[in-house]
Amino acid sequence: MEREKIKRIVSKHRHEKAAILAILHEIQEEDKQLETESLNYIAQLLKIPVANVYGLATFYSAFSLGKKGDTKIRVCSGISCHINGADEVNEALKSKFNLEMGETTWDEKFSLEKVHCLGLCSIGPNVAFNLVTYPKLNKERIETIIEILHKRTGDSK
């Protein structure tokens, strides 16, 4: 991300170290990743050691150093979704995109990850595509959804 942008985000949070999670969130959302450059620059602006920033970026699962896809697919693996067949949905996603959990497609359009609960347990299994959650999934339903997505975004297998 450009330095100017980072600077703006950091000064919006008044150069406060306590706001570092919010700063990282904003950069991750826009950039889909936390680059070495960005982390170094944040540390410089906040006047804290880079090691601190790097530690946070690796501790919290919301952040990633590698690029995430434009569409972040988050599969719920909470107990309720697990009982109701999340594994099946999981496998379908993995094979459709040819991805393992935590990976991103080569064209950086999709990335797949696991979350522990999306808080929609009565309508599981759930998968969130960015901000949109699709409920009550099974193998067939998720495959149709992926078909539609592929059509919308161009092929990405």
Binding site: T36, L39, N40, I48, P49, V50, A51, N52, V53, Y54, G55, T58, F59, Y60, S61
Partner: peptide
């Protein structure tokens, strides 16, 4: 604070940022 923990749980380890020699 040239080194810090990296990662969480079993993946945790002490390291310099980006595993590069630290400027600090």
């Amino acid at each position: 604070r040239a080194i810090d923990f990296v990662g969480r749980g079993r993946n945790r380890r002490p390291a310099t940022p980006f595993d590069m020699p630290s400027e600090d």
